[in-house]
Simulated scan of single mutants.
Amino acid sequence: MQIEPFLKTIDAISRVQRLMIFPLIALVFVTCADIFARNLLGSPLIWGFDVELQLFAALITMCWAYTEYRGAHVRITVVPEALLSRRGQEILSVISYLLFLFPFAIVIFVQGFEFAWNSWKLREISTTTPWQPVIYHIKAMIPFASFFLILQLIASTLRHVIAAIEAD
């Protein structure tokens, strides 16, 4: 069974998410424009806060899978690596993924889908500022991003299983 092309496809999907650098750049410009308007012109941009919030939400959610791909999520060492063989470390990683990460990602997907669906049905708008932009498209990123996270978690788990099998 050739599993490597499957894993490479998932990795390629996650690597596309590094394009989120563009919303980050836009976030910097909007924040600077808002600060400029507030401090030098005496009035903040009516749309500044909402756009900043939406860009930040997009940036954070859409980088979940890419962060997992890069192995950059926060990890907690429960059992010191010196106490386990390489195979033991990989098995512990698989157990951790199955007991903690997958359930978390699945709950985020299911609850996020319901959250976003209700927002789309209502055509929800933000009431925090006078601009009142629509926000249902931002809420839709939660299940979308968690789906890609689940895909990357599958790839990571399979890699740990393979490493456990191949370990000395």
Rank of each mutant, 00 (worst) to 15 (best):
Q54C: 02
S119P: 06
I46K: 11
A167C: 08
V79G: 04
L40T: 04
E124M: 10
D34M: 12
P5Q: 08
M141T: 12
T61Q: 06
S43E: 15
A145P: 03
I46V: 05
V79R: 09
G42P: 10
T157P: 13
V134I: 13
T67F: 00
T67D: 00
L158K: 11
P23M: 07
S85G: 03
I162A: 11
V78S: 03
K121R: 11
R159K: 15
E90L: 01
W131K: 10
Q2P: 15
L27K: 03
D34Q: 08
L45Q: 06
S146K: 14
Q132F: 13
V94K: 03
F148W: 12
D34Y: 07
F144T: 15
K139H: 12
F109I: 04
A82T: 12
A33C: 05
I76W: 01
T9F: 15
A37S: 14
V30A: 06
A57C: 14
I10P: 00
G71R: 06
R75A: 07
L41I: 03
W120F: 14
L53N: 02
M141E: 11
V94Q: 06
A12M: 06
A140M: 07
L153W: 08
T31Y: 00
T9D: 07
F6C: 06
Q111S: 03
P133R: 09
L7G: 09
I13L: 15
R15V: 01
L40C: 09
F104Y: 10
A65S: 14
I108G: 05
P103Q: 01
E81Q: 07
I125P: 00
H160W: 01
Y69V: 02
